[in-house]
Simulated scan of single mutants.
Amino acid sequence: MRRRRFLELGAALAAVPAAASAAAQGSLATTGDRAAQAFDVDFIADGRPLAPGDYAQLLMRLADEGRIRADDYSNGGIVEELEERFAALLGQESAVFVPTGTLANHLAVRRLAGSRGRVLVPADSHLYCDSGDCAQRLSGLNLVPLGAGRPCYDVADLVQAVQRSGEGRVATPVGALVVETPVRRHLDRMVRDEELRAITQFARANDIRTHLDGARIFVQSAHTGTSPADYGRAFDTVYTSLWKCFNAPSGAVLAGAKRFTAGLFHERRMFGGSLPAAWPFAAVALHFVDTFLDEYGRALARSRTLFAALERRGGVRVEHLTDGTHIVRLHLGSLDPVRLRRALAVRGVRVPEGSDGIVLLRINPTLADAPADLETRFLEALAEAA
């Protein structure tokens, strides 16, 4: 990537008015809080919130260091480097960049199921609830939801579903199944390792292909000690997000065996997903991926110190969720959540809006290098919210 060409992009990004960033913060901006990137600690994002100017400066530095090679419609260059890196990290032979996780999940089940178009999915999964029935409407698949109200189905649910599929008047074998973990609609609770093993063992025994929606699988790895590669290689395919943990503006990686990814870029383009230039997404994700687990580990340790100080104060309670990962509930008791949010904002700490006396705090790498007086800032804000 030549510096002269990149200067034009950098100038355009840096020229985005500050007002646009503030407007994007919605109700946060209306309280007089600062834009997200101005906070010392952020309890809303999965990763590090970056403003347009932050992206421009980072990409400029990476370009000056010769670390960006342009791609051609999402093929080659630094995108190929990204695919190779994430394939290794996810325990698979090969990987393909796609612009969104929605498309990654769709392409996975489309290829895995093949002519056996029945796919078993968690009833509360992103693919079933938040993807506009894309697999059904665009690929003719039949998604069968299991385990409603729970983070995931169990093997007993699978046994029943497979029996029903095979014993109908017209046998309709199951082609694939999907597991999502951590589970967004269940506050990023994780499916336990032993449950994942039982599901994948059942699938192999019944000739069912498996896909892991691992948008935040690196977060789960930090909590369990099981590597992303060990999670990924247990499934036929695995997807992870590039923006949730690795701060890219957008993007995802879908990994699997070479026979799975061969020619997949054609289907990516058919669905409008072959971006003419994907190098900005790849460059940012590659910059952050190798430090995420270390930074998140330090952030997790720092959060324990903070939460212990809040508990000692009294009047509030920190609730760690069963099978939880990076989200905790802060119970405010009689404190005013609006006043607390504003008091923290002026002290450089960003938290989401509360509901029913509870604020959801999300642990992320901004805590890894939090200021030494973070506990003092919180305690002062709590006093103002009383």
Rank of each mutant, 00 (worst) to 15 (best):
Ala20Cys: 13
Gly354Ser: 01
Val328Met: 05
Val351Cys: 00
Cys129Lys: 13
Ala161Met: 02
Pro352Ile: 02
Ala45Ser: 14
Val351His: 00
Leu212Gly: 11
Pro182Gln: 07
Asp193Met: 07
Ala14Gly: 12
Gly168Ala: 15
Asn364Ile: 01
Thr172Trp: 07
Ala283Thr: 03
Ala278Glu: 00
Ala248Met: 13
Pro52His: 11
Phe202Asn: 01
Tyr55Arg: 00
Ala88Tyr: 10
Val178Glu: 10
Gly175Val: 05
Arg312Glu: 13
Arg2His: 08
Gly214Glu: 09
Gln57Val: 13
Leu120Lys: 04
Asp133His: 14
Val346Gln: 09
Gly314Val: 04
Ala198Ser: 05
Glu194Asp: 14
Thr325Phe: 12
Asp64Ser: 06
Ala308Phe: 03
Gly324Trp: 02
Cys129Ile: 04
Val318Lys: 03
Gly53Trp: 04
Ile358Gly: 06
Gly273Cys: 09
His186Cys: 11
Asp207Met: 05
Ala95Asn: 00
Arg342Met: 15
Asp64Val: 05
Gly232Ile: 05
Glu194Pro: 12
Tyr239Trp: 02
Gly225Arg: 02
Ala24Ser: 05
Ser165Asn: 10
Arg216Lys: 06
Ala11Ile: 02
Ala277Ile: 10
Asp188Pro: 07
Leu158Phe: 12
Thr200Asn: 08
Leu107Trp: 08
Pro352Asp: 02
Lys244Thr: 10
Pro249Tyr: 09
Arg298Ala: 14
Pro337Gly: 07
Gly76Cys: 14
Arg3Cys: 11
Phe265Ile: 05
Gln92Asn: 03
Arg204Leu: 14
Arg341Ser: 09
Gly256Cys: 04
Asp213Gln: 06
Cys129Gln: 07
Gly256Ile: 08
Gly214Val: 07
Leu28Ala: 12
Ser334Arg: 12
Glu80Asn: 03
Leu361Ile: 02
Tyr231Ser: 02
Ala135Arg: 04
Ser21Tyr: 07
Asp46Tyr: 15
Gly114Ile: 01
Ala372Met: 00
Val119Cys: 14
Ala70Gly: 09
Arg341Lys: 07
Arg189Trp: 03
Glu167Val: 06
Asp154His: 01
Asp294Leu: 09
Trp243Gln: 09
Val144Ala: 11
Leu103Arg: 05
Leu13Cys: 02
Arg312Asp: 14
Cys134Pro: 01
Phe307Leu: 06
Arg268Cys: 10
Gly333Ser: 00
Val144Leu: 13
Gly168Ser: 12
Gly76Val: 04
Ala12Phe: 15
Cys134Ile: 15
Gly101Val: 03
Ala156Tyr: 07
Gln92Thr: 00
Arg110Met: 15
Ala282Asp: 04
Ala29Arg: 01
Val219Lys: 02
Val219Pro: 12
Arg150Thr: 11
Asp213Trp: 06
Asp373Trp: 04
Phe281Leu: 08
Gly53Glu: 13
Val162Asp: 05
Thr322Val: 13
Tyr239Val: 03
Val284Leu: 10
Thr240His: 05
Leu321Gln: 02
Asp188Met: 14
Val351Gln: 01
Gly166Glu: 11
Leu112Asp: 11
Thr305Val: 08
Cys129Glu: 12
Ala229Ile: 08
Ala278Cys: 00
Asp290Met: 01
Leu107Tyr: 13
